[in-house]
Design a protein around this nucleic acid. Sequence first.
DNA 1: ACCTGAACACCGTTCAAGT
DNA 2: ACCTGAACACCGTTCAAGT
Lengths: 187, 187
Amino acid sequence: MPAPEKTTREAIIAAGRALVEQVGVDGLTMQAVAERVGVRAPSLYKRVRDRDELLSLVVAATVEDLTLRMDATSTVPDPRARLMAQAHALRAFAHEQPVGFSLVFAAHGAPRVEPSAVAGSVAPLLDAVTELTGPEHALDGARLLTAWANGFITMELGGTLRMGGDIDAAWRWGLDRIVSALDRPSA
Amino acid sequence: MPAPEKTTREAIIAAGRALVEQVGVDGLTMQAVAERVGVRAPSLYKRVRDRDELLSLVVAATVEDLTLRMDATSTVPDPRARLMAQAHALRAFAHEQPVGFSLVFAAHGAPRVEPSAVAGSVAPLLDAVTELTGPEHALDGARLLTAWANGFITMELGGTLRMGGDIDAAWRWGLDRIVSALDRPSA
DNA sequence: ACCTGAACACCGTTCAAGT
DNA sequence: ACCTGAACACCGTTCAAGT
C-alpha cells in the first residue's frame, strides 16, 4: 500500500531557508525543518541525504534567487547606470537575506556550492564592466567591484562599519569611486 | 585540599584556535579542547562560561594577533607603500589563518567580538589613508580599501575567484587601482 | 579549590515495523 | 513507497562526590 507523500524536497528547502534567516544556521535542525513541513524528522532522509546536503541545497537555492535578481537588471541600457543598479540589487538582496547572503559569499569552510554558480550569479555585472572597460581588464574590473561590494556588505552586516558616518553615503562614495576608476581608462 | 591546576584559560584559547584551523569551527568541541589541554571536558567550565564564550575568545585572540601584525607595518615611511604593505599583511594573515580570518570578518550571525576591536585592528590603515587623502575622506577611503581587501580575500578563500587568470595579479591590479583612486584626489 | 564520572537534554541518523 | 517510533552515538552542560 503506497503511503501518501506529505512533503516535497522543495518544501524542505524552503523551510530550511526560512529557518536559517529566522533563527540562524544553528537553528537549522532536522526537527525544526520536519515540524515546518508537517512530518517527522526521520522522513526528511527520504528527500535529502543529511543535514549537510540540506544546507548546501539552501545555499544553492539562495544563489539561484540572487541570479534571478541580478538578471533582472539587464533592462537598464547605460552600462554605468546598470552597474550601479546591480550593486544596489546585490546589497538589497543581502539586507533581505543576510544569513543566506553570508552563506553564499562568506563561506567559512569548504565551498557549499559550485564557486562557478556563485560567480555566475554576478555574471551580468561582468557584462556591464566589459562594456565599460573593454575586454582586456573586464575580469579584473568585475572582481574589483564584486570584491568591494561583497566586503562592504559583509562588514556592514557584521557591524564592523557601524561606527560614525552615514553608511549609505559611504556605500555611494565607494561605488562611485570604483565605477569611475573602471570608467576612465587611466591605467 | 587544594587541587592542582592542570590548565589555563590561555591554553584553552590556544587549543581552540588550533582546532578551529585544523578541523574547522564544527571541530571545536569541548571534548577535543579538553583532550588538547589534558583535562576532562567538564573542567573547562571552570575557565570559560560555555562553548560560545570560548569561540568568542578565540575570535578575540585572533583579532589581537592581527592587530599586532598590522601595527608592525608602521615602520614603512611612505604612506602609499605602507598601505600596500598593510594590505599584503592582511592577506598573508588570512592565508595563515583562513578560518580565524573568516570568523573575524565574515561573521554569520551576531558579532562575536566588539566591532570596534575589529575596526581597531585595521586602524593603521586608516592612518596611512589619512596621509594620502587628507582627513575629509579618510574614513570613506579606509572603508573602500578594507572592504575591497576583505571581499577579495573572502572570495579567494571561498574559491569564488578560482576561475581563470592569476589571482595574485588580480590582487595587485585591484590594489593598485584602489590606492591610485585614493592617491590622486579627483573626486 | 579544581577535577572527575555520571547523568541529562538535545540533535543527527538508522532501521525495523507499520500503512 | 513513504511514514513513524524507538534506538544509538555524539555533544554541551550540570552536579555531586572526590582529592
